[in-house]
Computed example of a mutant assay.
Amino acid sequence: MKRRTADGTYRYVLVLGAKVNGIRPSSALRYRIEAAAAYAKRYPHVELIASGGQGPDEGMAEADVIARELMARGIDETRIHIEAESTSTVENFQLSRSIWDGEPGLTIVTNDFHVKRARLVGRLYFGLSTDALYAKTPPATKLKYVVREQLAYVKLFINYIRWKWRP
């Protein structure tokens, strides 16, 4: 899939959740939030979808942390939609669909290691065109995330085959 950097084309920006430490964003999530906030300031017509549920070891849903941090960076709350139930990349799209449904595409915000798979989910499962904001990955965790991402591709394709061939 060709790298496609976001350029203001799409109305909705899907900010994918990541680990929350207590009620504070992890470094990976903070980089996503910073990229989304800068983009939203550059393109005031876009609306943001903060997406991500609350894990058992998190004090707040990822989406709520994203929304709070976007507002702290000057993004008006009327531009932010919250989806706080998802637990995976596929669910981020699926449970946010009621917000972006009918649009030809989305901008995806995630860390650089995750962009390709996130865009693939959008295309395979939802038929979307996408572009992306490539938030950086914290250097201390990059190797862990890159290895985990390879395993996630295997899971993605197994689940896609099951989904595609379901009765």
Results as ranks from 00 to 15, higher is better:
residue 80 I to E: 00
residue 83 E to R: 04
residue 72 A to K: 15
residue 54 Q to R: 15
residue 52 G to K: 01
residue 94 Q to G: 07
residue 94 Q to E: 14
residue 74 G to I: 04
residue 87 T to I: 14
residue 95 L to M: 15
residue 94 Q to Y: 09
residue 53 G to Q: 08
residue 68 R to I: 05
residue 78 T to N: 13
residue 60 M to Q: 12
residue 88 S to F: 07
residue 58 E to G: 08
residue 72 A to I: 09
residue 77 E to F: 05
residue 84 A to K: 15
residue 83 E to H: 03
residue 59 G to V: 13
residue 51 S to N: 04
residue 90 V to E: 10
residue 63 A to N: 05
residue 56 P to V: 12
residue 46 V to H: 02
residue 73 R to W: 03
residue 83 E to Q: 12
residue 88 S to N: 15
residue 84 A to T: 05
residue 83 E to D: 08
residue 59 G to D: 11
residue 60 M to T: 08
residue 77 E to G: 12
residue 66 I to N: 00
residue 54 Q to T: 06
residue 46 V to G: 01
residue 54 Q to H: 11
residue 65 V to I: 14
residue 56 P to C: 07
residue 71 M to P: 01
residue 57 D to T: 13
residue 78 T to D: 14
residue 96 S to D: 04
residue 88 S to Q: 12
residue 77 E to C: 07
residue 84 A to W: 02
residue 72 A to M: 14
residue 62 E to F: 05
residue 73 R to C: 10
residue 76 D to C: 10
residue 80 I to M: 09
residue 94 Q to H: 11
residue 52 G to P: 02
residue 89 T to H: 09
residue 88 S to K: 08
residue 59 G to Y: 11
residue 80 I to W: 02
residue 95 L to Y: 06
residue 64 D to H: 14
residue 62 E to G: 03
residue 70 L to H: 02
residue 54 Q to N: 10
residue 55 G to E: 10
residue 53 G to E: 09
residue 83 E to W: 01
residue 61 A to W: 03
residue 76 D to A: 15
residue 61 A to N: 06
residue 56 P to R: 14
residue 76 D to H: 13
residue 53 G to W: 05
residue 47 E to H: 09
residue 87 T to A: 13
residue 49 I to W: 03
residue 94 Q to R: 15
residue 64 D to F: 10
residue 90 V to I: 15
residue 49 I to R: 03
residue 86 S to L: 06
residue 59 G to P: 11
residue 92 N to W: 06
residue 74 G to E: 11
residue 91 E to M: 12
residue 93 F to E: 00
residue 49 I to T: 07
residue 89 T to I: 09
residue 94 Q to S: 14
residue 89 T to L: 06
residue 86 S to Q: 08
residue 79 R to W: 02
residue 47 E to Y: 10
residue 80 I to S: 01
residue 71 M to K: 10
residue 67 A to V: 03
residue 74 G to D: 13
residue 61 A to P: 11
residue 67 A to Y: 02
residue 78 T to W: 09
residue 59 G to F: 07
residue 49 I to C: 10
residue 77 E to N: 10
residue 48 L to W: 02
residue 69 E to W: 10
residue 69 E to I: 07
residue 95 L to S: 01
residue 67 A to W: 00
residue 74 G to P: 08
residue 56 P to K: 13
residue 77 E to I: 06
residue 65 V to G: 09
